[in-house]
Design a protein around this nucleic acid. Structure first.
Lengths: 343, 343
DNA sequence: TTGTATGCGTTATCAT
DNA sequence: ATGATAACGCATACAA
């Protein structure tokens, strides 16, 4: 192994040794300055930083990783890389990590146990320094075990364990807001399009709807409940099913915006106008929801901020801090898809 | 440096040496089997593969990278990690890379020269084996230079260079399809909402619209041209501007679906119905466009397939092959936002 | 405070 | 066909 660098035209990338030589110090000193792992005299520090600048030196992440150092990367398990909902969270994570010279490693679990497990293994194999799980299906136990290896931040559930931090959405509260808004407008017969029964977000949103109705003295009617799949097509179909049952209603809450879009279409084909005949409320406030016709009243989740928070928390965990739990509150955004009930 | 592994409860991860010892061969032989870099006797191969399975051995990517091997990762420069349009491409890339045991490293350039340059530097620093650029603003020269270091696949332009492969969308053809569709329905006064003037996709789509009109003997009216920004709000504003000019038209083409959504809203607030009063055509066929009201007629770009193609091509480049250029054709998806012009 | 030496897990070179 | 061994670039225990 004599010559590893055949392209003599390209300037050889600088390494620790070269910086050390240029600054007249030992490689160890350069490393120490890079990591702030020990005090170094002002003189040498200046010399080294000068050399780093001149040579445009950037430490090799692979070498760092191999030597037992950090990879400066955080694994992010999402459901689908192109999820309209978690997309903003990904952006928040990316932005925050970048500020701290970290990079995200995104992987998709496809809302499937096996895939999630496999992708997490892959991320750990790649030696990510921490892991962010955006609402997976993995058991709490699996997450806690993972947290014994690396810091874990998980959304969509409440879980207390060492080296782990969970951020839960206020799904129940969000649904309650939606119901209250509609009741405030005089609606009594309120249909609900739910998400997949095995999805925690879906369960909590459904529960909030039922609980708030009951607390207002209204008995939830199962005939007014349709089960979707958090996607447009599912929302459309669920709405059609409810319509076919013939039980009258004056408002609909969909457990996410995508299903609200689909429901809106089903209502249209049934000859019902929104909001004249039926009021419609979504959940999530996707960027697009301000531009539907009519603009959609919905429950806002600050997803971008949640992404930022998840990344910040992961970084804190990495530094040994135990961040203080934060409640992520939902908020109702009233637009034009809801109005006062007719008599 | 005596003890590096303080958690004695966790089973130590296996490495090449351990596998070699267990199989009774040298580490070099294990490496050869792993990489297929030389012929190995059947006996030893079986022994080694047995040992690998027993020890659940997985090669360390960092060590591979450091030793000059591949990182088994491909850098992907996109504009925004949550772009509704490129999202599907990201999924295609991820799916394809995964089949080949590669992982994507996503980075966002924010449609900004400096960011793009910085993110590409970062990706190269992380030693990605190849680079996929989803329609950036970088100069051809920069891309060609990058391709001297690692294989590059770039979408949204046509560029011939060694170690580089470009995939261009048929933007012009797509616009022509839209115009032909409308003219076929009897429309003559066709407005156009364009994208940012400095965006290649936007330029080509605008050009196709103008060229097709001319070829049909219709002179494009600048009064019917509004400039948006490829987002909903921009499309809405551009449409309002055109409406304010008072020049009559019976159809609108938006240079992407997001602007079509915005335009549809502006038309609504102006008291114009789609498609009764005005026909509307989008561009991209976002997943959502089948569920707008009315469902949007649009020009389909097979983005997921383009993502897959980009990844496959990058992998081919990596193996020294020079893939054959492919034309990505656009396709008109006729839904309910267009209809025959009234007289 | 600073330098020296070693090891991280793999690939590639050379010799057999 | 196979083995021994030197890199790869960095962090760190230890010596000074």
């Amino acid at each position: 192994m004599k010559k590893r660098n055949p392209n003599n035209d390209l300037p050889q990338r600088a390494n620790l040794a070269m910086v050390a030589a240029r600054a007249g110090v030992s490689p160890a000193t350069v490393s120490r300055i890079l990591n702030g792992s020990a005090r170094v005299s002002e003189t040498k520090r200046n010399a080294v930083q000068g050399a780093i600048a001149e040579l445009q030196f950037r430490p090799d992440p692979a070498a760092r990783s191999l030597a037992g150092g950090r990879t400066m990367s955080v694994g992010v398990l999402t459901q689908f890389i192109d999820s309209p909902f978690y997309g903003e969270a990904l952006r928040g994570i990316e932005d925050t990590l970048q500020e701290h010279q970290y990079v995200p490693l995104f992987a998709s679990g496809h809302w499937n146990d096996d895939d999630e497990r496999a992708r997490i293994s892959l991320l750990i194999e790649r030696k990510v320094d921490a892991l962010i799980v955006l609402t997976g299906r993995l058991s709490n136990q699996t997450l806690v075990e993972t947290a014994r290896k690396i810091p874990v931040v998980v959304t969509g559930r409440q879980l207390v364990a060492s080296n782990l931090f969970s951020i839960d959405f206020d799904n129940e509260g969000g649904s309650r807001l939606a119901v209250r808004h509609l009741i405030g407008l005089g609606h009594q017969k309120i249909a609900f399009i739910s998400g997949p029964a095995d999805h925690p977000d879906a369960q909590q949103r459904l529960f909030g709807y039922q609980a708030e109705l009951r607390s207002r003295g209204i008995l939830p009617d199962v005939q007014l409940l349709g089960e979707g799949n958090f996607q447009e097509a599912g929302g459309k179909q669920a709405m059609s099913t409810v319509l076919r049952r013939g039980v009258p209603f004056s408002a609909v809450i969909a457990a996410n915006d995508q299903m609200a879009y689909g429901a809106r279409l089903a209502l249209h084909f049934a000859g019902l106008r929104v909001p004249e005949d039926v009021s419609l409320v979504g959940f999530d406030d996707l960027p697009h929801s301000a531009f539907t016709l009519p603009p959609l009243t919905t429950v806002r989740q600050p997803v971008y901020e949640i992404g930022k928070l998840a990344a910040e928390t992961a970084l804190m965990l990495l530094n040994g801090a135990m961040p203080e739990p934060l409640l992520i509150e939902a908020q109702l955004v009233a637009r034009e898809s809801t109005r006062i009930a007719r008599h």
